[in-house]
Nucleic acid binder design. Structure first.
Lengths: 208, 208, 208, 208
DNA sequence: GTCTAATCGAGACGGTACGTCTGGTCTTTCG
DNA sequence: CGAAAGACCAGACGTACCGTCTCGATTAGAC
């Protein structure tokens, strides 16, 4: 079934008979997928090319992934997950702003933007891929953001009673809107504008 | 070169020699594209199928459109442009909310959501299509929204000094985020939540 | 039905209503067919090209000829018929040899060889064309040759009792064999060799 | 690159990696080509039809042959090469006559005549095909015939000093002329007439 | 009524990516 | 240590779509 839904870690798997899976092949496939992905997106990326470029048989790819979408998903998660963390210190609103800025900065780099954009596009006609993207990439960041918003409300940085989910939609939605539709640039200033809109006073946190 | 960038109206074109373009064929192609577009999106829609279903030759399609993306673009604009207008009456913020709600309601209907989502997805690896979508669909609505926000600020419904473009990004971005990424429902209540977030007081317009 | 079987002469046709057929167009079509015919043969010659090159509408071509084969047939007959006559003077065998040499020499020129070769090829899957080629080109020359052979027998230049048709087949067959299959050159010497084989003694005609 | 120029034998090819070529597919393609070839010739034979009829993919055909002409060439050689041998016994002239009669008889059968005629026709606008036909079919038979003529001269059955190549052109040219141009029948008697013309005395071989 | 111009439906063309499959080789672990 | 269990590579296979092309018919206005 492949690894669209994660669990792609390659463990020693003690005691199983037969030749073990080649970690070298796996890495080569993911690297090839990243390298060959241009702005032509997933449709411009062929499994044959990935196989050839990785020095791997096509059958090996299909043994472990259901298709190129799943390969790219693994390649993306593998490369990007560590670079979009929330910062540990600071007041809640600042931490939220910093993480948003990290996302924005990452998406300015083609090597991160391209796979993400390709996966969102592919997700529109591939429900499995869409679900995988939500579960493996979106969900955890969203949970963290929701917690920060709750904290910011408690700290008096945001009005009580606002809909945290709608707020998250607006902040990340604005980024993704520029990314996917308008093509406008994602600058640090822009992120600051967004935060200002939802927290007009820009008040410092109330001391606890 | 096709009509990706608009100007697809079919005028009598007085006095031009040669057999005139068949309006029947054009309509049949657009209708077929709409009908055959499932959730499999553009990749699941084939030019051969459109041609067969429309009772039209493939060559006729390629004579007038550069590819299936352009066909779908015309079909979408043709069908949807009149249904997302801004209302004529009411205070600025209300008019903005109503139009947002119209967009939300339209995108709940598969026959409008599917082509839009497919076009956004295809735009990720087809710059011409992305530009056409911006120019023919996004731009004008964005201009109207920007004017309404300016009016709302003047009327005292929104804080002065806020970045109108960032605000638009957030409102529409939130809708499109749900549409393209989270899959969460687009309800009227949701739209109201969005408006409340950016206009917390929900104050009535200051009389002029 | 067109003119595959001849009768392409264009008469004044007194008193017929309507615009008369354009002799200019007819000539332009035939000329274009000749000029555009390369060694790619009939399949490499398109009706659109002929029409464009002749400054004539495609419809005009289809009005007067059933297809490009018929056009080429007319073009070939029109251009070549006068150049393969039998000489008027000399003893029968010499006259036969001279006409054979004329055929050989003509077929060395691309502008005559190409249409002929193309017509023979097309005739293999187009019985009408094959019949037209026989009736309009082959038959009359064959009749003349048969008469000459009869005369040569009477004159003692050829053995009595030989099968004139088989002899014609051999002489022209040898030429066409080189033309169509082996590609070997058609020289005057070669023609002389052929005559020598069937008239070994090469005796002069017996005086009458 | 295909097999227009022969060497189409399919050997076990020990130890080559990858899935071996399917002999079943190859045979099915050749058989389908033969069966679908009507008097409409090569132009009336489509690659799609061959593929469908052979239960084979179009891609497989294009993988191994450059086009339908090459397929038909293989099909023809494959089917016919064993049926046009020269006899082993008899005096040289008789052996020549018998082989000529075999050719004539074979060409009376549609299943042999059609591909041959189609290949000659196609060869007129496809130099590769023409060369392949010469090299793989014509050449060897011509060599044998030349040897027989030399032998016949030595045996006193033919006049010394005649041009063997011209003679071959005449004999086979007469057959092909009837086949390709005049459409006259190819009977055993006709073959005998041809031999008589070039060996008037029809003398038995001089004992060695 | 013929002319040019331009469109139309039909369908073959040669090519390409997909995802599957067949051979044969190589690397482990278990008996 | 020798089998069996898998994974591996190479590459051919059937399916299906692509975008282009030619054909021959058709529809208009111009002459």
């Amino acid at each position: 079934m492949g690894s669209v839904r994660g669990m792609d870690d390659i463990a020693p798997e003690q005691g199983k008979p037969g030749r073990p899976r080649s970690e070298r092949a796996r890495q080569a496939v993911l690297a090839a997928a990243r390298e060959l992905l241009t702005d032509k997106g997933l449709p411009g990326l062929t499994v044959d090319d990935i196989a050839a470029h990785a020095g791997v048989s096509k059958a090996t790819i299909y043994r472990w992934w259901p298709g190129k979408g799943a390969v790219l998903m693994d390649a993306f998660i593998d490369a990007v997950s560590t670079k979009m963390e929330f910062p540990a210190d600071g007041d809640p609103l600042t931490r939220l702003r910093i993480q948003l800025a990290r996302v924005a900065r990452l998406m300015n780099e083609p090597r991160a933007r391209r796979p993400f954009v390709a996966l969102v596009a592919a997700g529109q006609h591939d429900p499995e891929l869409a679900a995988a993207l939500r579960d493996r990439f979106i969900a955890s960041r969203r949970d963290s953001a929701r917690q920060l918003i709750t904290d910011a409300v408690e700290a008096g940085q945001l009005s009580p009673g606002l809909d945290a989910d709608a707020l998250i939609d607006m902040l990340y939605g604005a980024l993704y809107y520029r990314l996917l539709i308008s093509g406008a640039p994602l600058t640090d200033d822009y992120v600051s504008h967004l935060i200002e809109i939802i927290a007009p006073a820009a008040r410092p946190p109330r001391p606890a």
